[in-house]
């Protein structure tokens, strides 16, 4: 059983050490023996140049993040006086003061809690509702099933921006504009098309014998769903869950418009500090880092599911 909707399996995926390199290595080893010494030398130096280039690129890529991290561990006076790179020559500047100041602010801890309150339900609801619909599309007969599924696929690329104004008006009428519920609902709505699409394709590949066996044992639809479909759908559900979790956790736009000062998540709380950027680095740097910690932990812990989830959902 494969995750048919996820393009990345095996080769080329971080977390599979060396796999993309193997084919070329094999070819090189079996390369034509008549290669001249000159071409071997040229190849050696070209290989060296490639390595140097890649190291430089890697350094270039980590420098911005290192800068944020280093800045977050310096106190405001040092930040104003000199660049973050000074911590390498003066490690004594390192301090966790910015973090304790930041986490001592109620508005920040409240915002962090709001992020959790928004992200967890928005993820669970999308997975559960998406799995139910995905199962119905994959294994149930009903009139117009294919047309309904085409409609869901059509909704995959609808930009979230189009719903900002209508849902702001609708939620205003319902009295949930500015609440956590409004933000959650928005994310559920726009998370569902991808969830249904991904899970339906995955569930459809579950061998039919397994379902028939469970049916013969007397399982009803609900038990079949809970005991066969959900466990077997684990990999796809994990990819979807990780993608949706990160999407909501990292969202700023929806929360910027749909939350108020009591329900805003960390991203929105930080956004308000960016107006006076230079004067707020001691707040922004640790704040940004705190908001990054969970996604980075997820990234390093679940590389495979992370990559396939992000890849599959990139168009959203």
């Amino acid at each position: 059983m494969t995750t048919s909707s996820v393009p990345l399996k095996g080769p080329g995926e971080p977390g599979e050490p060396g796999s993309p390199a193997q084919p070329s290595a094999a070819v090189d080893a079996a390369g034509p023996p008549e290669r001249s010494l000159a071409s071997k030398l040229a190849g050696f130096f070209a290989g060296g140049a490639v390595r140097v280039f890649l190291v430089v690129v890697a350094l270039l890529w980590v420098t911005p993040t290192v800068g944020l991290l280093a800045s977050s561990f310096r106190d405001p006076t040092d930040i104003a006086a000199s660049g973050w790179w000074e911590v390498f020559s003066k490690p004594s500047q390192l301090t966790t003061e910015s973090y304790s100041t930041l986490l001592g602010k109620e508005e920040i801890t409240d915002a962090l809690w709001n992020t959790v309150l928004i992200t967890v339900p928005a993820t669970v609801l999308v997975v559960v509702i998406g799995a139910m619909a995905g199962y119905a599309f994959a294994w149930m007969d009903f009139k117009g099933r294919d047309w309904w599924f085409v409609a869901v696929v059509a909704l995959l690329v609808v930009p979230i921006q189009i719903a900002l104004i209508p849902l702001a008006d609708l939620f205003g009428d319902l009295g949930i504009f500015g609440s956590v519920l409004g933000v959650v609902l928005f994310h559920v709505g726009f998370g569902l098309p991808f969830a249904i699409f991904l899970l339906r394709n995955f569930f459809a590949e579950i061998p039919r014998e397994l379902l028939e066996a469970a049916r013969l044992d007397g399982a009803g639809e609900t038990r079949l769903f809970a005991t066969v479909i959900l466990p077997l759908g684990g990999p796809a559900i994990a990819s979807l869950g990780i993608f949706q979790f990160l999407w909501v956790w990292n969202d700023m736009l929806v929360a910027l418009i749909f939350s108020d000062s009591g329900s805003r998540p960390l991203t929105v709380a930080l956004t308000e500090q960016t107006r006076q950027f230079s004067g707020n680095i001691e707040t922004l740097a640790p704040g940004a880092f705190i908001s990054m910690v969970i996604p980075l932990a997820v990234f390093f812990a679940f590389q495979r599911q992370f990559v396939s989830g992000v890849m599959a959902g990139a168009v959203k």
Binding site: S24, A58, W61, N250, L270, T274, G287, F299
Partner: peptide, 29 residues
């Protein structure tokens, strides 16, 4: 062509994990 390609890919792919807000703050800096 390099043996440590996985490490390199991790480094390059890492920014995909973080929010555009965090990336924005990083680059504002």
């Amino acid at each position: 062509r390099v043996r440590w390609s996985t490490a390199f890919k991790l480094v390059i792919f890492m920014p995909m994990a973080i929010s555009m807000l965090a990336a924005g703050i990083i680059f504002r800096l």
